[in-house]
Design a protein around this nucleic acid. Structure first.
Length: 504
RNA sequence: GCCCCCAUCGUCUAGAGGCCUAGGACGCCGCCCUUUCAAGGCGGAGAUCACCGGUUCGAAUCCGGUUGGGGGUACCA
């Protein structure tokens, strides 16, 4: 069986073209992933291009967040900004649209020259009024084509008024269709496109529909794989490819990632920034695994797979057509799966930054060393839904002061007096051990014996001790916790607890 | 409104005419393990395959319609 990318196919070229107008969005990451997987599986090339023509909203910080986020996920591109640590690399540079303005100007001239496009002198207010009028008349909204038939004389007059004019593309009547990789044949009547559309603003800046086509042409993109929200834009793009005299790429429209309520994923209803998931302690493996399975499945019963395994199995025709709701619980489960699969060294490395963050946030008062954390792994690994969860599980180890509640100290079946009695006796039994025999299997028998002679239930005594030394009712196994805490601190905390009980 | 896309357990999905009295996973419930919490093991509830017609010896799978949901309707991307 041939493995993914065993042979390369220079004719397959796909891209992700993010716009740096916001932090890396889950939807962008997923689209990037599917393009990347398609390229890897077919032996094609995956590239990244920045669509930064929305100058007002684009920032360098967002650009950085997007490139770093994709790389963090393990998604790499062969051409574009940030390849192999370089500013930019690839045979079709530049890969930033604001640096490709000449190409758009040339393409616009070509269309103007061939009369496939024309200057439109309508003012925004005029267009606005027109839109309202059409709306009121219950007509399809769209441009009337007022400037489409202007005579040279009329154009000169407009220019003389100082009007710059936007450039509109002439939409030809008829049906535009394509064979979508995911949904087969799609056909749309150009009458529904809203009339001749603007490709270059009056200020000279090219618009998305135009730049995307010019660039995809220039960069020899063979397959355009993007979100379903672009289906209705596709006819415009096809028309432009035609107008520019270029063969069409193959289109494939992926199902959308939906909010839990089934609407298109949005910041208002969901957490959409990849950086937030990273900050909350999700692993790249889980995120990639989860994104891939939103709309795709290997067709087997496997559900925990690495990026390589996914690339191996990835087939675009196994992609679902309907949108998929984002299910955070499933993501958390997958994250747990991956945390359990990570190697010790690797896990420790990934945990350390989260401990730094907890320290900075004041949740812990001391930063543990890597060795300390590694020693804890056997008892915390399966108790962490996320990497950030370590502090929740064993934060008491790195905190000096415990806020223990006297009421919480008393186990359900016990009263305060019994608890005081139990803790005092436990303290005494534990104190009999020195630092050398302070091991889990040494500490447990004496407390079991104590329970036996007093006629208590082990669970009750253990719970009292647990709360006394950790302040919590749910912790890793008690005797492992005592060992991690050390003799000194265990005894001190027991003393503090008995003192607290005695006072009440 | 108009155009387009979609439709299998609550959720993600398997399923490409007979293997389906519809399989897996998350979540949920129960049991086991057990000092708590997890993890793990076992079991369970959960889908008349949106609905109605048609094609066929036979349909979750093909066709049509209906309904529902979603997306798009910019001098945003």
């Amino acid at each position: 069986m041939p493995s993914a990318a065993s042979q390369s196919d220079p004719t397959i070229r796909v891209r992700i073209a993010p716009s740096p107008t916001g932090p890396l969005h889950i939807g962008t990451a997923r689209t990037a992933l599917f393009n990347y997987l398609f390229a890897r599986h077919t032996g094609g090339t995956f590239l990244l291009r920045l669509e930064d023509t929305d100058v007002a909203r684009s920032t360098a910080a967002f650009e950085k967040d997007i490139l770093e986020g994709l790389h963090w996920l393990g998604i790499t591109w062969a051409e574009g900004p940030g390849v192999a640590g370089m500013e930019e690399a690839g045979p079709y540079a530049p890969y930033r649209q604001m640096q490709r303005l000449d190409s758009y100007a040339a393409a616009a001239q070509q269309l103007l020259g061939a009369d496939r496009a024309y200057r439109c002198y309508c003012l925004p207010e005029e267009l606005e009024a027109e839109r309202h009028a059409r709306e009121a008349a219950k007509l399809t909204p769209g441009y009337s084509g007022r400037c489409a038939t202007l005579t040279p004389g009329e154009r000169q007059a407009k220019e003389a008024e100082g009007r710059r004019g936007a450039i509109r593309f002439r939409v030809r009547p008829g049906i535009v269709g394509w064979n979508d990789m995911i949904r087969d044949r799609v056909e749309i009547d150009t009458a529904n496109l809203g009339g001749d559309f603007v490709i270059v603003r009056a200020d000279g800046n090219p618009l998305y529909h135009f730049t995307v086509v010019v660039d995809d042409m220039a960069m020899q993109i063979s397959h355009v794989i993007r979100g379903e929200d672009h289906i209705s834009n596709t006819p415009k793009h096809i028309l432009l490819f035609e107008g520019l005299g270029y063969p069409l790429p193959v289109f494939g429209h992926l199902p959308l990632i939906l909010n839990p309520d089934g609407t298109k994923m949005s910041k208002r209803k969901s957490q959409t920034a990849v950086a937030d998931y990273i900050a909350q302690g999700f692993t790249r493996e889980a995120l990639v695994n989860y994104f891939a399975f939103l709309g795709w499945s290997p067709g087997t019963e496997e559900d925990v797979l690495t990026l390589d395994e996914i690339a191996d199995r990835f087939e675009l025709d196994k992609v679902q057509k309907g949108g998929a709701r984002f299910d955070r619980e499933r993501l958390e489960w997958l994250n747990g799966q991956w945390i359990r699969r990570l190697g010790d060294e690797d896990l420790v490395e990934r945990l350390l930054p989260f401990l730094d963050a907890s320290f900075a946030a004041g949740q812990i008062e001391r930063r543990p060393t890597g060795d300390e954390v590694r020693a804890l792994l056997p008892i915390v690994r399966e108790r962490m839904p996320t990497l950030a969860g370590l502090t929740d599980t064993v934060g008491f180890l790195w905190r000096d002061s415990l806020a223990v509640d006297a009421a919480a100290l008393v186990p359900k079946r016990w009263d305060a007096a019994t608890t005081l009695d139990g803790l005092t006796a436990a303290r005494e039994a534990l104190a009999a051990h020195d630092a050398v025999t302070w091991e889990a299997d040494e500490l447990e028998p004496p407390l079991r014996a104590l329970v036996e002679t007093r006629g208590w239930k082990a669970g009750d005594l253990f719970m009292a001790v647990r709360v006394a030394v950790t302040g919590m009712t749910a912790t890793p196994p008690l005797f492992d916790v005592l060992v991690a805490l050390g003799r000194e601190r265990t005894l001190d905390r027991l003393d503090a607890a008995t003192a607290l009980l005695a006072r009440t």
